[in-house]
Design a protein around this nucleic acid. Structure first.
Length: 282
DNA sequence: AAAAATATCAACCGCCGGTGA
DNA sequence: CTCACCGGCGGTTGATATTTT
């Protein structure tokens, strides 16, 4: 069963907006406010799709838009936000009053990318190009096979965040997983210095076994995701019959196939990409 | 001056998550 | 729980403007 189209395409205009259409849209929103984009075109007497109206309003007609060239400060802020957030244009736009996600996205693709490349910086990973290309491709997050039995998870696009290595081994598995884990943001943060009001509210944390991290005990049993979220032994726990926080649990209880294969790490051929950032963002 | 190449950016498309019936 | 609807997002396209040859 397919989804119905957002509007009647046969009777809608497409392409550039005319001045008259703009005026109608502005007048309608001034009178009735934003909302219910689906019914707006009809109510406003526009032969446009609701999405098209929304886009036009958000990106070009809104009175609080800044327009004009980006300042050097805005450039740097965009670069820094991009290094932290990746292509989350709406989040980036949220930190630049008067700028839209579309505008920033276009500006990034046409100006900033080139600017960074000229500086010798890979615009995707925000690392020096040589280093970046040496570590495989330019995806923001990736699994890099380090040795035949070690998998390294790196978060290449967050250079300002201090990381430390952590090795995790799984019973019955020959692989050892070496993770780059986030400690906390370093005290010096140019973005915050320059923009003290900036509240990035970024918390990157995959809850993990505290004992293991602190070196207490010899637990090598991975918790299921739900347990990691503090749902130990609850209905939500999918680890199987064992307490999944039991130190050195039995092969049954610790078998990855029995538990929650978080991020698919149990797979031997782990060459797929990890959407770490998207996990955290959503 | 004209043609070709390149840059810019407004707009579209398809997908996704939230929500309510 | 499922389904449909809606708003929102990110990637991409294509028309137009500008620069280069």
């Amino acid at each position: 069963m397919g989804r119905s189209p957002c509007c009647e395409k046969a009777h809608t205009n497409k392409g550039a907006w005319t001045k008259e259409e703009d005026e109608r849209l502005i007048a309608y929103i001034k009178a009735h406010g934003e909302g219910c984009w689906r019914s707006l075109p009809k109510a406003a007497g526009l032969l446009r799709c609701g999405k098209s109206c929304r886009l036009r309003w958000i990106n070009y007609l809104r009175p609080d838009l800044k327009r004009g060239n980006f300042t050097e400060e805005e450039d740097e802020l965009i670069i820094k936000l991009h290094s932290l957030l990746g292509n989350k244009w709406s989040l980036i736009a949220g930190r630049l009053p008067g700028r839209t996600d579309n505008e920033i996205k276009n500006y990034w693709n046409t100006h900033i990318r080139r600017k960074l490349i000229n500086r010798g910086i890979d615009p995707t990973s925000h690392r020096p190009i040589q280093e970046s290309s040496a570590s495989q491709d330019s995806k923001p997050t990736q699994l890099e096979p380090v040795t035949s039995n070690t998998i390294n998870i790196s978060f290449t696009s967050a250079p300002k965040v201090e990381t430390f290595h952590e090795s995790i081994s799984f019973p019955g598995k020959s692989e050892k997983i070496s993770m780059l884990t986030f400690k906390e943001e370093k005290d010096e943060c140019p973005v915050q210095e320059k923009f003290p009001d900036l509240n990035l509210e970024l918390r990157i944390s995959l809850p993990d076994d505290v004992d293991r991290l602190q070196g207490h005990g010899k637990s090598t049993t991975p918790r299921c995701f739900k347990c990691s979220l503090g749902m130990i032994n609850g209905m939500e726990c999918r680890c199987g019959r064992m307490r999944c926080d039991v130190v050195g649990g039995s092969s049954k209880g610790s078998d990855m196939s029995n538990g929650f294969d978080f991020l698919g790490l149990a797979k031997k051929e782990t060459t797929s990409l990890l959407g770490f950032r998207s996990l955290e963002m959503k």
